[in-house]
């Protein structure tokens, strides 16, 4: 199954935020979207996830979702979006309860995703007892529980400190190596983009258009060791983006 944006554009009132975006997500690849602040990357992600309607163009699903997928397009939020009144297990159960799975099946899924994200010992913990990194792991476990075909990740590591971010990036790489999930990963952090993306779309400042697409043909598992090559790639993307970011910065200051 593939998720396609077909010439998507969007405006809030008179402000045009996105123009003529065409991207495809699927085939077990991670597509990263980077761009300066206010370029509409999060808006684009919400449209891909059906949480917002595009004013131009269409968002399309190609092919059938894999059998057993409970929620083919699944979101991961920057602020984790965990229910504070539910335990780790309760938060995972929340997204399964509407599917009438039966007690044993549900239990099996919960056990499985807790195992895969190494959260077994935290089953009964409340979100407030967890660190930011652990919270995002819970959110990832919750996403895995519904067996998504495409994961939409909205700056999932931005709320975390640098060390936790490194750890979670390793986790994501390991997880992808095992599961080969497809994802659209929105971030403003270029290091994340080159570590996790098979393809990186660089958006221009508002209205966001695709400035450049960078294919990174290096296995995810090897990237931690080949930091120098990644650094060059990150530098290249930064050069593309720098002018846009500077202009956007000034624009926002003017607007303010």
């Amino acid at each position: 199954m593939r998720l396609l944006a077909d010439r998507v554009g969007h405006r809030y009132g008179t402000t045009e935020v996105l123009r003529d975006i065409g991207i495809a997500i699927g085939g077990g690849e991670i597509v990263c979207i980077v761009g300066p602040s206010g370029c509409g990357k999060s808006t684009l992600l919400r449209m891909l996830g059906g949480l917002e309607q595009a004013s131009e163009g269409r968002v399309l699903l190609e092919g059938e979702p894999p059998a057993g997928s409970l929620n083919p397009i699944t979101y991961i939020f920057q602020d984790f979006a965990l229910l504070p009144w539910r335990t780790v297990e309760g938060n995972i159960r929340l997204v399964l309860e509407d599917h009438k799975l039966g007690a044993t099946a549900m239990r099996a899924i919960v056990d499985d995703v807790l195992e895969r994200t190494r959260l077994k010992d935290f089953r009964a913990a409340l979100p407030r007892q967890l660190s930011g990194g652990m919270k995002q792991r819970v959110a990832i476990a919750r996403a895995l529980a519904v067996r998504p075909a495409v994961m939409l990740m909205d700056e999932p590591l931005s709320a975390l400190d640098a060390q936790t971010r490194e750890l979670l990036m390793d986790d994501l790489v390991e997880l992808w190596t095992r599961e080969r999930f497809s994802a659209c990963y929105v971030t403003h952090n270029l290091a994340e983009a080159v570590r996790l993306g098979h393809r990186v779309h660089v958006l221009s400042r508002r209205p966001g258009r695709i400035r450049e697409t960078v294919e990174i043909d290096m296995p995810l598992a090897e990237r931690a060791e080949r930091a120098a090559e990644l650094e060059a790639m990150q530098r290249h993307i930064w050069l593309v983006m720098r002018e846009e970011a500077r202009a956007a910065d000034r624009e926002l200051a003017d607007a303010g």
Binding site: L51, N71, T74, Y75, A81, L94, V95, E97, D98, R142
Partner: peptide, 25 residues
């Protein structure tokens, strides 16, 4: 938190579930 409601919607929770499990608590 609107984000929690959006989360519920993104996981395809029914309207009743969102009210009962997210909005009321």
């Amino acid at each position: 938190d609107r984000n929690l409601i959006r989360m519920g919607q993104s996981f395809g929770l029914s309207w009743g579930s969102i009210v009962r499990k997210i909005i009321l608590p």
